[in-house]
């Protein structure tokens, strides 16, 4: 049977790779990403499920799924104009994607499917920084974290629990890691740009640190998340990840300017 060996959460700011490459020693993200990367490498995952949010690069108002699995042989990016990093090719894991799709449908989670992806920074910044060789295949799970109305926080947590059951029931001898991509507090393009909700960041940190996921589900309402910035619904990607780990505490957790970096070790 497959095994969930690690879950990690990191931000995906589009400038992070450039900052690490061009301004070494200047950005907190560099050291924190390195800490997460070393622990992820030590867990030796064979495949990654990445919980993330599209930023109007695959999906827009023409069709916007609340949840969508990427089931691809491979995909490329970053496709956006504002993410200066080397072009990347992500390997998919269609077999796992299809198995998760089927398992989800049979347990009450009707996930959408995309068989062609235009990858943006929300997928590629974590992968490029945490798995620089890009050799580990990935099943991206997109959740709408940007366009209200957002999916319910509890639904995301239960989705994570379903993913955990899927992994443990999957008849493959593979080590699986979950990578959550997103921030706790950030505003893009709106009037609150440049501000960080430190109180919310600190509250989220404290609930994650204590393994208090029920509190997180209750407090991370859509109005509270959006009060922390118009893309702060990306926290849902962390909530889904939290659903996969159970009520355990993280082995590592740091925050800076509305961003979290964390590791849950399950092996």
């Amino acid at each position: 049977m497959a095994k969930l060996v690690m879950a990690v959460g990191v931000p995906h700011g589009p400038m992070i790779p450039w900052q690490i490459a061009n301004e070494p020693g200047k950005h907190a993200a560099e050291g924190l990403m390195k800490d997460v990367r070393e622990q992820l490498e030590a867990a030796e995952p064979d495949v990654i499920i990445e919980t993330t949010s599209d930023h109007f690069n695959n999906f827009s108002f023409q069709h916007l799924s609340q949840f969508c699995l990427g089931i691809v042989d491979q995909a490329e990016g970053p496709v956006e104009t504002y993410c200066p990093m080397p072009p990347q090719v992500m390997k998919g894991h269609p077999e796992m994607g299809k198995a998760l799709l089927t398992y989800g449908l049979r347990s009450g989670f009707d996930l959408g499917v995309a068989q062609e992806l235009r990858l943006d920074h929300s997928v590629l910044v974590p992968l490029h920084v945490l798995t620089p060789n890009m050799e580990i295949p990935v099943v991206p799970l997109y959740t709408n974290g940007l366009v209200p109305p957002l999916p319910q926080t509890r639904r995301c947590f239960n989705l994570g629990r379903m993913i955990r059951r899927f992994v443990e029931d999957w008849d493959r001898d593979l080590r699986v890691a979950v990578v959550a991509s997103g921030v706790f507090s950030l505003e893009i393009g709106g009037p609150k740009f440049g501000t960080v909700d430190e109180e919310w960041t600190s509250a989220v940190r404290s609930m994650l640190e204590g393994g208090k996921h029920e509190s997180l589900i209750r407090r991370a309402t859509e109005p509270r998340m959006l009060a922390a910035g118009n893309v702060s619904g990306e926290l849902l990607n962390w909530v889904t990840m939290a659903g996969t780990v159970g009520e355990i505490k993280p082995k590592f957790l740091e925050t800076e300017r509305g961003r979290g970096y964390a590791v849950w070790k399950l092996d």
Binding site: F56, G189, G190
Partner: peptide, 8 residues
């Protein structure tokens, strides 16, 4: 009602 991310 235009989305701020797109507005940018």
């Amino acid at each position: 009602g235009v989305h701020p991310f797109l507005l940018s």
